[in-house]
Design a protein around this nucleic acid. Structure first.
Length: 651
DNA sequence: ATGACCCAG
DNA sequence: GGTTCTGGGTCAT
């Protein structure tokens, strides 16, 4: 008969082979919102070492974040302002509903860090966190180490340039580590039996060296962020996104923590007496096992609830996870990992409900064991969606809704201009700007207050409902007045979407509106791009390409589709069919209108003949030249209809 | 493609 | 998860 502990060891499923060849840094800017305000208004900044003022950032009736002094005095994120004032009467409250300043600061810091990478692997999470995959810098600097004089090493920040970088002591970790009392340079071992020098030990020593290099790079970057950008930060250093993010939490603010090897559970199990001890062989498990299961990034409320219910064999007493922490209801990673029969298969049974991510059991099991193979994403130029929302006490009439839709849409268009336009040196481009990306979809979301229940109570629901559809092309026109674009978008797209969401003219009450553009498609930025050239030869070459692609695609157009046949003309001698000459007048009619019964029909917009968003090139002597509102390409007016359809092909 | 849902700060 | 105001993603359809 074997003990249950031994059974747990024997029954524990194989852990996926670790891949610890990367070095990943996780940055978290300290009190980001508060820091942005302090940089704007240095008088807000604490007098050094004197009691700093407690500061909180307010959105609506809620504290969205606060500085460490406020936290020390009991303030928490997402606390009501009224409670916060009661708790800390002298708290300095600043309004933080306008996010532009935070977005700008976040982008600047992100770009600053990106410049240090060789691979371009820099990934943002929210405004105040960034991962960097610095594996290539570490590989390079590991290779050039002088093992005879590690104390006086030089970290090269540029390949093949030995002058750019910093001096460091490669025998010591920079900053804190976990565990925090290591024998420097020599991995600690909790097993008293010394195994023969095997592969694990080589890996451990190598990994130690690489993590030491990573810790010094992190330290250098933190100093640079503070000196050059004015932001202090906290960093975690490990081999993947999961571990780097979690280990950074150990020393906040203005600190850094490196998760030390060994990361593997050593093969030598001769000294093991329990599964717990087996897990502690690895510093990864030693570190993770104390975490509440819901604290693992990727295991959110729903999943942690399911896991907790299974381990407790009953629903947890409360629906508030924060109530569990530090109580006997708390379920830790260690509890889950050593639960009898626990493994990817059981987790798949627990978590694999319809709608759940496929392979979620294996993924969750990996996370519990500190395994996270997800890559640090390449730096992105453009977001994949932009959304603007506001919350309200109650929104009950159409006129209120339309008013708010106008406000939100105005912000959205401004955001699109700010984030999706770049300077264009082409002399002909509209306003010297060009679009770097085109969202294809427009979405309207609302959060309705539920109707009263039979017993007179009201079930609170925070679920959102949404409708979406093609984003009309006229929003990309840079010559038309923003207010006109907004009004058109509200009338032809958003109000119809709203009616699809709420078919009754009244009776609803909304607590939130969100307008979003999604489905972003990046515009090619190489010089072969379409856009704004007066070079006639080039223009016609481009036109040939358009028509050629058109002809290929055209074979799939059903015979009753009239658009195709008229556009297919010999590219060397393009005639001007009478019908096309007319089409140029409404080339910017939103394509969304075409297929939606809910939207007003194109005739309405096509009759406002000389609207400013149309080509205004008539006066330049070239005559009949037009610029595409989507890509700024200039071409003969008669070609525009085909060109517009070209854009429509990728919708 | 669309809409619901989950996760993150 | 929700309260804010976002942003990233997956699944079923």
């Amino acid at each position: 008969m074997i003990s249950t502990a031994a059974a747990a060891v024997a029954a524990r499923p194989r852990i996926q082979t670790r891949n610890d060849n990367r070095i990943v840094l996780h940055f978290d800017y300290d009190c980001f919102y508060a820091s942005v305000f302090e940089r704007e208004n240095p008088s807000l900044k604490a007098l050094p070492l004197l009691t700093p003022p407690p500061k909180a950032v307010q959105q609506k009736q809620i504290v969205v974040t606060c500085n460490y002094e406020a936290r020390r005095r009991g303030l928490r994120k997402l606390q009501l302002i009224s409670e916060a004032k009661k708790l800390v009467p002298d708290v300095v409250i600043v309004l933080g509903e306008e996010l532009g300043r935070f977005r700008d600061a976040s982008k600047a810091l992100y770009k600053f860090l990106e410049a240090f990478t060789w691979s371009g692997k820099v990934e943002k999470l929210g405004f105040d966190e960034v991962w960097m995959d610095v594996t290539d810098l570490i590989d390079y600097n590991q290779a050039i180490l002088n093992t005879n004089d590690l104390e006086h090493s030089f970290f090269q920040l540029k390949r093949n340039d030995p002058t750019v970088g910093f001096s460091y002591d490669a025998t010591k970790i920079a900053g804190h580590s976990f565990p925090d009392n290591p024998q420097q340079g020599i991995p600690s071992r909790s097993c008293t039996v010394t195994p023969p020098l095997g592969r694990e030990d080589n890996d451990t020593v190598t990994l130690m060296t690489r993590l030491i290099l990573g810790s010094h790079l992190a330290h250098h970057l933190r100093l640079n962020l503070e000196d050059d950008q004015g932001y202090t930060s906290t960093v975690g250093i490990s081999t993947n996104k999961l571990l780097s993010k979690l280990v950074g939490n150990l020393n906040k603010p203005k600190g850094q923590t490196t998760l030390l090897p060994p990361y593997v559970i050593l093969e030598d199990a001769s000294c093991l007496s329990s599964s717990d001890e087996a897990r502690r062989q690895s510093h990864v498990s030693l570190f993770l096992d104390g975490h509440d299961i819901g604290k693992i990034p990727g295991i959110g409320f729903k999943m942690s609830q399911r896991i907790r219910n299974h381990v407790l064999s009953r629903p947890a007493d409360f629906d508030d996870r924060s109530m569990y922490e530090g109580t006997n209801e708390s379920i830790t990673v260690g509890h889950v990992a050593t639960f009898p029969g626990m493994g990817p298969e059981l987790l798949e049974k627990i978590l694999g409900v319809p709608g759940a991510e496929r392979g979620i059991g294996g993924r969750a099991w990996n996370l519990i064991n500190g395994i996270d193979d997800t890559e640090v994403q390449q730096a992105k130029n453009v977001p994949s969606q932009i959304s603007i929302e506001d919350s309200y006490g109650r929104l009950e009439t159409m006129s209120e809704v339309v008013k708010e839709l106008r406000t939100l849409t105005t912000s959205l268009i401004r955001r699109m201009h700010r984030d999706l336009l770049e300077d264009d040196d082409e002399p002909d481009s509209a306003g010297g700007k060009r679009w770097t990306a085109h969202p294809k979809t427009l979405r309207l979301s609302t959060r309705p207050r539920l109707p009263l229940n039979a017993d007179g109570t009201r079930t609170r629901s925070f679920n959102r409902i949404s409708r979406s559809g093609p984003l009309p092309n006229f929003v990309f026109n840079l010559k038309e007045d923003i207010n006109a674009i907004v009004e058109k978008l509200v009338q032809v797209a958003l109000i119809p979407m709203f009616r699809r969401l709420h078919s009754q003219p009244s009776g609803w009450s909304l607590s939130l509106l969100n307008v979003a553009v999604t489905n972003m498609v990046e515009t090619a930025s190489d010089d072969g791009r379409a856009g704004g050239r007066r070079d006639i030869g080039r223009m016609f070459k481009r036109q040939e390409e358009v028509l050629k692609e058109w002809k290929v695609e055209d074979r799939d157009v059903p015979p009753d589709h009239p658009a195709g046949s008229e556009a297919v003309v010999p590219s060397h001698a393009i005639p001007l069919p009478p019908t096309l000459g007319n089409e140029i007048q409404h080339h910017c009619v939103p394509t969304a209108l075409a297929g939606s019964e809910d939207m007003i029909q194109p005739t309405q917009t096509s009759t406002d003949g000389n609207a400013s968003w149309e080509s205004d090139d008539e006066d330049d002597g070239a005559g009949n030249r037009a610029m595409c509102a989507v890509c700024n390409a200039v071409m003969p007016a008669f070609a525009m209809a085909a060109h517009e359809r070209f854009h429509d092909l990728d919708k």
